[in-house]
C-alpha cells in the first residue's frame, strides 16, 4: 500500500506546526500550503490524495477554493471550521467538500475522518455492495433491508433516503443534498420532511430509536450513516 499524500491548507503556522508531525507519525506524507492559490497549484502539480482545508484563508475564501477544485478534481476535501462559522461549513459541504472537523479537534478525530474520506475516494456514487451496520443489512441490488434476518418494510422515499446515506457511509450528507436528491430541487428548504422521514426510518431500523446508532445527526449540517463496525 502506497503512502497517502495529504495537502494541509492553513495560514496559521501554529496549526501547520502540530499537524505535520502528527500526520507524519500517523503514516501520511504531508504537503503544506499557506494560501488558496498555493493550494490550487499544489493539487494540480503534486496530486495529493486528500486535502485538509481551513476555510479562513488570507488570499481567497475557502469556499472558492472548493468550488475551483471541484471544477476539475475529485480529490476528497476535509474542511477545518469553527463553530461560529456554521453556515460557511454547510455551504462548503454543499459545494462538494467531503467532511469537516470543528476546531479545536483531537488528532484521533481528524485521522478517522481522513481514513473514511480516503476509503470512499473514487467511488462517490458507485452502487455499494451489501452493507451491514449494527445488525442492519442493506442490499441495494435486491432493494432489501433487513434487521437480524427480518425484512424491514420501507416506503420508497424512506428507502431512497437510506440508500443515499448508505452510499456516503461515514460521511456527512447535508440537509440540502438529501432534500434535493430525494424530494427534488423545489423542496431544498423543507427541513420538516426530512425530520419526519428520518424519525420514521429510525423507528424501523434502529434498535433504540431514542439512541440512534445507525443514522447519526450532525447538528445544523445534516446526517451521517455510521461506519460498518
Amino acid at each position: 500500500m502506497t503512502v497517502s499524500r495529504i495537502l494541509v491548507v492553513d495560514d496559521e503556522p501554529q496549526i501547520q506546526r502540530f499537524l505535520k508531525p502528527a500526520l507524519t507519525a500517523a503514516g501520511y506524507e504531508v504537503i503544506e500550503a499557506l494560501t488558496g492559490a498555493e493550494a490550487l497549484k499544489a493539487v494540480a502539480t503534486q496530486a495529493p490524495d486528500l486535502v485538509i482545508l481551513d476555510l479562513g484563508l488570507p488570499d481567497m475564501d475557502g469556499k472558492d477554493v472548493i468550488a475551483s477544485l471541484r471544477g476539475w478534481s475529485e480529490v476528497p476535501i476535509v474542511i477545518l471550521s469553527a463553530r461560529d462559522r456554521e453556515s460557511e461549513k454547510i455551504a462548503a459541504l454543499d459545494l462538494g467538500a467531503d467532511d469537516y472537523v470543528e476546531k479545536p479537534f483531537g488528532i484521533g478525530e481528524l485521522t478517522a475522518r481522513i481514513r473514511n474520506a480516503l476509503r470512499h475516494r473514487g467511488r462517490r456514487d458507485a452502487i455499494p455492495e451489501i452493507m451491514e451496520v449494527d445488525g442492519l443489512t442493506i442490499d441495494p441490488i435486491k432493494r432489501l433491508v433487513s434487521r437480524d434476518g427480518d425484512t424491514v418494510h420501507l416506503t420508497p422515499k424512506e428507502y431512497d433516503l437510506l440508500l443515499l446515506l448508505t452510499r456516503h457511509t461515514g460521511r456527512v450528507v447535508t440537509h440540502r443534498t438529501l432534500l434535493t436528491t430525494v424530494w427534488g430541487p423545489a423542496h431544498s428548504d423543507d427541513l420538516h420532511y426530512l425530520r419526519v422521514f428520518i424519525g420514521q426510518l429510525r423507528q424501523k431500523i434502529e434498535r433504540d430509536p431514542t439512541q440512534p446508532r445507525i443514522l447519526r445527526t450532525e447538528p445544523g449540517a445534516g446526517y451521517r450513516m455510521a461506519e460498518r463496525d
Binding site: 496559521e12 501554529q14 496549526i15 506546526r17 502540530f18 499537524l19 508531525p21 502528527a22 507524519t24 507519525a25 500517523a26 476546531k103 479545536p104 479537534f105 483531537g106 488528532i107 484521533g108 481528524l110
Partner: peptide, 28 residues
C-alpha cells in the same frame, strides 16, 4: 487558534507520540 494548536499537539503526542522523532515531540 491557540486552543486548537494545544489540543492538536496534545492529542497528537498522546496517540502518535511513540511514532514521532524526539525532535518533533519537543517541537510540539
Amino acid at each position: 487558534t491557540p486552543l486548537a494548536t494545544i489540543t492538536g499537539a496534545v492529542t497528537g503526542l498522546r496517540q502518535l507520540g511513540e511514532r514521532m522523532t524526539a525532535e518533533n515531540r519537543d517541537d510540539l
